[in-house]
Design a protein around this nucleic acid. Structure first.
Lengths: 207, 207
DNA sequence: GTCTATAATCAGATAGAC
DNA sequence: GTCTATCTGATTATAGAC
């Protein structure tokens, strides 16, 4: 009797979680494709294949939908960072993260949120999972940045926080989409180009 | 009689133009402050001090308002570019334009438009003044980019178009606002930092 | 929890008097 | 051209039956 109940509950929870994951996948794609404002809740519901009211039972607001998608992306980032060698060169790890970020964006899986929307900001700041993930990722990147600066691999005159922001900014770099729209370069070429401008700069480098 | 008419018409036109310039100033500031989606036409009208219907007599849609603001900014860019020495080092001129762009943004006068909005894209593409300005600016920058590459001042392995996009992208670089929000650096320091990461890159440079 | 149907609101755009 | 008042449509969110 007891075990039957346990199994039943667990099964229900699995169904629930699976549905929420499906919702988050859809939201993630729509956010990447058209951004927060242009994404409507109707679209999300229709795309998932459930009624809008049902959607609101899972997530109490549009902002919470977006936050859930961001949590999902942050988890993926944490997972990727965990695969990088702890004893690798800090600069290599940083480059790997930047590359991963741009790959995600070119694949159409990087949500784009307006940084000005205050309700959205509140939803993100109030989301424990998101903030924890953000802090963990920032700590990992921050440690690599400082290590790379101590090694003389990264310009030590630039404040670490500016480097961190510059890395994060690759997630919404319009140069990627513009080059992609141009159709003259493959995704891999685009990534190499932007990686180069990001780390090496536009100036010619002495041999 | 004839001259009186001419003067009268000219005066009316001046009034009209002055009002439209006031509208554009307001739109420019609002676009810089909150972006296209968050800016409402009601706000614009209230801020200018006229009724919404009157606003629509001047500009037939919200998109046209934004396009007019972009034309205004493009003119300012053309005016700035015209002040740069024709015989100056191409790299210096490019840096000057990037610096000017970031100063505009930090001053809260750089409109920010969503690159995905198709109605807005159509309004911009259909605006002769905007397109002409964009092409003229791009031609000037493009010439400097190629010259700098031939001189060996800018990395010749990067396609000129990628350099151009990278320059334009400074107009919406979130690193600027993030650093400004941090409050740890002056506007001038922020500009120097981003200028450095843009042209010199994050990597340490050999002495 | 899921649905249909509807509320409530907001924003872009317009009618029509002056 | 400017105004007040209104329309229209889209969008977030909810009520209430099953």
């Amino acid at each position: 009797m007891k075990s039957s109940n346990v199994v039943k509950v667990s099964f229900k929870e699995q169904m629930l979680q699976a549905r929420e994951e499906a919702i988050i996948r859809v939201v993630n794609l729509l956010l990447a494709e058209k951004g927060f404002e242009a994404m409507t809740v109707d679209e999300v519901a229709a795309s998932v294949g459930i009624a809008k009211a049902s959607l609101y039972k899972h997530f109490p607001s549009k902002e919470d939908l977006a936050a859930a998608a961001m949590v999902s992306v942050m988890r993926r980032a944490q997972a990727f960072i965990a695969t990088l060698p702890r004893d690798g060169a800090p600069l290599d790890n940083l480059r790997a993260v930047v590359r991963w970020t741009m790959e995600l964006k070119l694949a159409g899986e990087m949500p784009s949120l307006p940084s000005q929307n205050s309700k959205l900001r509140a939803a993100l700041l109030g989301n424990r999972s998101y903030m924890d993930g953000l802090i963990e990722v920032s700590d990992a990147l921050g440690a690599w940045i400082e290590a790379a600066q101590e090694q003389g691999a990264i310009n030590a005159k630039i404040p670490a926080i500016a480097i961190l922001y510059t890395v994060y900014a690759r997630a919404c770099d319009p140069v990627l989409e513009f080059l992609k729209m141009g159709g003259q370069h493959s995704d891999e070429q685009i990534i190499e180009l932007v990686l180069s401008t990001c780390f090496d700069g536009l100036n010619a480098r002495p041999v």
